[in-house]
Amino acid sequence: MTAKLTLGPVLFNWKPETLRDFYFRIADEAPVDTVHVGEVVCSKRTPFFEPYIASVVERLHAAGKEVVLSSLALIMSEREMAAARDLASDADLLVEANDISVAAITAGRPFVAGALLNVYNEGTLATLESMGAIRVCLPAELSGDAIAALATAAKSEIEIQAFGRLPLAISARCYAARARQLTKDACQYVCADDPDGMEVETLDEIPFLAVNGTQTMSSHYMDLLPDLVSLRARGVSRFRLWPQNVDMVAVSALFRAVLDGRMAVAEAEDRLAGLCPGVQFANGYVHGRAGHLFVEDDE
């Protein structure tokens, strides 16, 4: 069986109509098997997209896509916990737990363990599976060897992050607000100004990180095109593409084509670079190296 493609939740604060249209187009055109919907980063953003969720889910279902509802990553208040309970109570849709509390409250029903849970080893994997995890998206910083060991031990589907800015950290503090001398409480939703994240450079003006509200991401886009086939052979059953402010239909088509053996990696790489102008790519983590590096080939 060939590997599947998952479109991760949109981590950025896109305008609700833009987000709706994005999902409609994904439903109609993108060769992905599963699509995640839901706010992961900041609960203050949640209300804006809520009116559109039902129509988006319907459109995705009609196109034959599996839909997963993603939870918040950092749950700190009773209000946020109540929202998570609400999410988990939806019996029709699979929920992605991005905080351990969400996995706990799904209590015995199938769920997806999200990339922001810490699944580093077989013991944790087995525990989540015993709780109902049918799919586990692994943390970004795992090496290929760790991924292979987990895939071997897994009863669930193993998914890894294959494209887009990597979510590296989450905080109670909002850096999009801080960069503009605002506090989180009075943030004026300034994170919406950065639909692909706010670029963070070193003092030498070298691109380094990106800020998405309370989330810190890599400046580089993860790109596992050159590694897809070998990781598939090591037992990875799904690859996650994080939505960026680029043509995600075209991006997903490249990943599909390489997985299906219909396009050479070199050609796909060229086309990906064309789709993401000015972007630096990285795949260091799966080669056991620093995350920002791009490793052509293992020695």
């Binding site: 922001l116 910083e141 990597l166 950290a169 905080s171 810190t216 890599s218 983590y285 995350g291």
Partner: peptide, 14 residues
């Protein structure tokens, strides 16, 4: 950052 949920160090250094 929320502790144990931060990969900034490995991103820069491995």
């Amino acid at each position: 950052m929320a502790e144990g949920r931060c990969a900034l160090s490995s991103y820069a250094t491995g």
